[in-house]
Design a protein around this nucleic acid. Sequence first.
DNA 1: CTTTGACCTTGACTTAAGTCAAAAAACGGG
DNA 2: CCCGTTTTTTGACTTAAGTCAAGGTCAAAG
Lengths: 235, 235
Amino acid sequence: MPQPQPLSPLDLIPFLGETLLFAGLPEFQLLKLATLAIVQTYDKGESLFQQGDAATGFFIVQAGRIKVFKVAQDGREQILHIFGEGNHFAEVPAWDGHPYPAAAAAIEPATVVFFPRQPFLQLLEQQPDLAINLLKSFARHLRHFSNLVDTLTLHEVPTRLANYLLHLREQQGSAEQITLDLSKGQLAARLGTIPETLSRVFAKLKRQQLLAVNGNQIHLLNVEGLKQLADVDIP
Amino acid sequence: MPQPQPLSPLDLIPFLGETLLFAGLPEFQLLKLATLAIVQTYDKGESLFQQGDAATGFFIVQAGRIKVFKVAQDGREQILHIFGEGNHFAEVPAWDGHPYPAAAAAIEPATVVFFPRQPFLQLLEQQPDLAINLLKSFARHLRHFSNLVDTLTLHEVPTRLANYLLHLREQQGSAEQITLDLSKGQLAARLGTIPETLSRVFAKLKRQQLLAVNGNQIHLLNVEGLKQLADVDIP
DNA sequence: CTTTGACCTTGACTTAAGTCAAAAAACGGG
DNA sequence: CCCGTTTTTTGACTTAAGTCAAGGTCAAAG
């Protein structure tokens, strides 16, 4: 069960003002928002909502990370997106009122700010800026999805992994030593495969001297080779 | 090469007013739009733009159908979306100014209305209603994508085909006799597979007495069986 | 007609990746 | 520090779906 946090709305204002969604909103609106917000904490693995649940609102991550994912009947998971600090998600269901199209759960202990649907819609009417921010967010998500479909259907697992690792490398300052930001099991779900296969692909890349693995530490031995394998197109 | 059509702007107004994107706009705005619009016709197979092209504007389909798709280096295609009469597409690139993330081509002779980016952005600033319509459109696309990823990664080809056929059946009035709206080759690309595999899956479903195929006419012999195979979840 | 080209189907084969099972390694309390 | 749980790896096997190549079908064009 999520723990509602007794936290003063005032403490939330600076945080909200820095999120992309609420950037540029006047102070008094942020205050209103902050009073509506419900801060919740989740344990690792705990579920925020299931696919098909009625959409009651949307979320902003304050700490930790949340995965949004689809589940097959056989239990296999496909992660659609992982959201970290300052990211917001489930705005579409909050906005259009249809059920959540995917499930969400914490992949590590997390604190999120929940905004109920109705007040959010009201605010949206009063604040054209917010509509623009929402558009930006939707546009980002659409590009993400188009990229995801490309990756998952037109590339094989080694390519997807190489891609992922190279992105991670950039995020972490382009050194050859990188730290996985997901457990291997979760990484498999992110890449649209299963842990066994991921493990084998890591083994294969090791054999090819492309990288070395030590727990969640990956040493990229041959970045050029990985790039060739990844052979990305426009994201 | 697309043929720009010499068509009076006035003729376009009623059409534009009925599209979801421009629904509810005042007449004088529609007129402005109509003067900006460039009507183009494309032959079957002709390309509107390539993935990575600079986004110069967006499109509304007036007649025929357009596919938006990703291409792998080996030439394999994944269709992301098919747009028919009254549908609009590529609003994201037109809006955010980044390159088109996928390619577009006509799957049959088509007439589209092209709107250049800059005037569109100006109009958007003047018309908050348009921003709302755009949000609706983005939201629809996002749900479509989340569904697409689910289908492509969590279900096998026979399931995907059964799903497709059942949707088609609903569209066509729920009779057992349906007409494919795509060539089998394009259907394969839509379902994330190749023609050979699709052909074999059709053969398999025939063998299981689930359907009968005659060209683009499909007779659904056992709708319940297909539903079981499709075993859809929330779209 | 009959020829041409686009589209579709079929067969034989290969391959990427999933399944199942078990062992090994890593982790987190108590 | 040890024990039990979770995560990861490995092996043997299966399977869905892709590749390659050859025919077949059909309709429009000559």
